[in-house]
Design a protein around this nucleic acid. Structure first.
Lengths: 316, 316
DNA sequence: GCCCACTGTGTAGCATCGCTACATGGATGT
DNA sequence: ACATCCATGTAGCGATGCTACACAGTGGGC
C-alpha cells in the first residue's frame, strides 16, 4: 500500500470530504478520488461509501486510516533525525494561538526563533470555542489551546498534546469597588454582583455556573462579550465584574483591579496540540520547544521565587 | 524523501553493493544507481562514495539508512494491523534454520502452519559459523540461530531477536565406555580422552577450550567434523568422545550413549533473528509465534513436569 | 416540483517518473 | 596488457499521477 495514498486516506478521515482533502493537498477532487479508488483496490475492501452528497469512511477505512498515522509519524521522525544530523531545522511552521498566549509567551518565542536561518513561523490568532482546537491541527502544525479543570484534555483523536502552563483566572473589579480593598475574594463576596460574561459556548461560562453552585445563588450576566479589552472597559465603567486571565489583565491605569478568587478552581491549563506526524518534524519540534521554554519562564515570573521552573513536558 | 528510495539505501547499507541490491530487489544496477542519485539530491548530501570497484556509504548515508529502518518497520506494522483487521495472515515466509532446530521444533511448526490457507513457509538449512546468522536476515524473514553463553547475542545490527530455548550439550560416549556407567560427568572425568571436535570457527570449539581451562590439561582433538551423524558414527567406533545437542542426539541403537556434563556451561541458546520491518509483517509474526510455541513445547518435554512452560518472549 | 449548487466519479490526454538496454569509464585480478 | 567486475550516464519506453471536462446523484431554496 502506497504511503502517499495512505496519507490521503488519513486526511479524508480527518477532513470528511474528498473536496476538502483536495483543497488541503493542492489537488483536484478527481485526483483524490482516483487515488482512494486505487487504495481500495490495493486493500481489497471498500474504504468509503456514499452518504448524501459526500462519502464517509467504512469501518475498514477508519481502521486503515488509523494505522496510517504511525507510518506518517515514523517518516517524519526519520526526516527529523536526518535534519538533526545535518544540523538543519529549517522549514515553515504554522502556529495557531489564542489571545493570552498570543500576547505573552509566543512573541518572545517567535523573536528567539527568528534568529535561526531558514526557520519561519507563521502565526494566526483564534479564539475558538472549545470544540475547535483539535480541528485546527489539520492545517496548523502547532495549536495552542486551553482547557479548564474537569474538561477533557483533548487527548482523544490521536493528537500529541504538551502541557505548557496553568494560568489563574482572576476577578476584575472597577477601581473603588467595595471589594477592591480585599486581597482575595471568596465566592460569597460575589453574590449579588452583575457579571460581564462570555458567549455561552465559551468555557469561562462554566466557571460562572460553578460560582452559582457553590453559593447557591443565581448570577446575573448583563453582557456577553468575547473580547477581553471590551470586557475590561465595561468593568471599568462599573457595569459588572468579570473573569480575566492573570497574565494579560490590565491594571489601575485602565480603571480596574484584579483579585484572585478562592473556593473554585479558577484557572485553566494551556497546552499545545499537534498531529503526531507533524510533531516529529524537526522544525516543528524546535518551535514547540522554544514556545514551551518561554511558557515555563512566564509562569516562573508569576510565582514565588522559591518555586523552581517546570522542566520537561507533562503529558495530559 | 521517497520511502522506496530509502528502502534501497537501507539495502545498500546491508548488502554493500549496487549490484547486490539490484539482484535482491529485481532491478538492474543502473536503476538502483539512479534512484540512489535521486535520493542524494533530495537529501542534499553525498550518501555514497567510490571505493575500488564498488561504493561505500558515507557517514551521512549510514545515518539516513539507519533512520529508514524505523520507517520500514512502521509501514510493516501498519500493514500487519491491516492484515489482522481483515483476518488475513497470508504471505510467503522464508525461514533459515540449522540442523537441530530443523529436526525438532521447526517441522511441527510448519505442519501446523500448513493448515492456514494462503500462508506458505519456505525453509532452508544452514550450518553457518557464528558470524553468518545476521547476514542471512537480508534474504530470510526468520533466521533461527544459536549462541553459547559468554558470546554476544546478535543484539547489534538493529535486528529483532527472540529467545526460543536453551539446549544442553551432552557428552557422547561409545557403548561400553568406562564412563558410560555414570549418570553425569565432570570435566575431570574427561581428562585424557581423545575428542571428535568441530572446525575451529564453530562455537562448540570454545567449549573444549573451557574444559582445558577448568581441568588445567590439554585436550587432544583427533578429528574435526561438522556433521553430527558422522561425529556419532566416529564416537560409536571408539575413536573419541564428542559434544552433541541433547534434543537430537541418537541413542544406544547407534552404538552411543549421552551423558550430561557438569562444571562447565555446556548449553546453547536458540533464538530467532529478524529484520525489524520483516518482524512486523503479520505473516512473519504468525510463523514466528508458532515456531516459538513449538520450541517451548519441546523444551518442556525435556524438563521435569513441574516446571511450567515459558510464556512470552525473553528479549536478549 | 423545479432549479441550482455541491459533491463525487469516470474518461481522455499529458507531463513526469522509474525502469531497461546499452555504452562507457575506472579499479582490480591474472 | 588484457579480462573481469562494478558503477554510472544516456536514450527510450511503459506506467503513474494528475488536470480538464463531462456526467450523475443529493440536498436546499423557492
Amino acid at each position: 500500500m502506497d504511503v502517499r495514498r495512505l496519507d490521503l486516506l488519513r486526511e479524508l478521515a480527518e477532513r470528511g470530504s474528498v473536496h476538502a482533502v483536495a483543497t488541503a493537498t493542492h489537488r483536484t477532487p478527481s485526483a483524490v478520488s482516483q487515488q482512494i479508488k486505487l487504495l481500495e483496490r490495493e486493500a481489497g475492501l471498500p474504504l468509503t461509501e456514499r452518504s448524501g452528497r459526500g462519502i464517509i469512511l467504512t469501518d475498514a477505512g477508519r481502521a486503515l486510516a488509523a494505522s496510517a498515522i504511525d507510518v506518517a509519524a515514523a517518516i517524519a521522525r526519520a526526516e527529523a533525525t536526518w535534519d538533526e544530523y545535518i544540523g538543519d531545522p529549517t522549514g515553515h511552521v504554522r502556529v495557531a494561538t489564542f489571545p493570552t498566549a498570543g500576547q505573552t509567551f509566543v512573541p518572545p518565542a517567535v523573536a528567539a526563533l527568528s534568529r535561526l536561518p531558514g526557520l519561519t513561523v507563521e502565526l494566526t490568532n483564534r479564539d475558538a470555542d472549545m470544540t475547535d482546537f483539535p480541528s485546527l491541527t489539520a492545517d496548523w502544525d502547532i495549536v495552542i489551546a486551553y482547557s479548564l479543570p474537569g474538561q477533557r484534555s483533548w487527548s482523544g483523536r490521536g493528537l500529541r498534546n504538551i502541557y505548557l502552563l496553568s494560568e489563574p483566572l482572576d476577578v476584575v473589579l472597577p477601581l473603588g469597588h467595595r471589594l477592591a480593598g480585599k486581597s482575595e475574594l471568596t465566592p460569597e463576596d460575589l453574590v449579588g454582583e452583575p457579571w460581564i460574561g462570555v458567549p455561552e459556548e465559551f468555557a469561562f461560562d462554566r466557571l460562572l455556573h460553578e460560582l452559582e453552585a457553590v453559593t447557591h445563588s443565581e448570577i446575573e450576566v448583563v453582557q456577553r462579550i468575547s473580547d477581553n479589552l471590551i470586557t475590561e472597559a465595561l468593568v471599568a465603567q462599573g457595569i459588572g465584574v468579570a473573569f480575566a486571565p492573570r497574565f494579560t489583565a490590565s491594571g489601575p491605569e485602565k480603571g480596574i483591579v484584579t483579585r484572585p478568587l478562592t473556593g473554585v478552581e479558577a484557572f485553566r491549563h494551556v497546552l499545545m496540540l499537534m498531529r503526531p506526524d507533524k510533531a516529529e518534524r524537526l522544525a516543528v519540534r524546535t518551535v514547540a520547544d522554544e514556545i514551551r521554554r518561554q511558557a515555563v519562564a512566564l509562569e516562573a515570573s508569576h510565582t514565588p521565587a522559591e518555586e523552581p521552573p517546570l522542566v520537561g513536558p507533562r503529558w495530559v
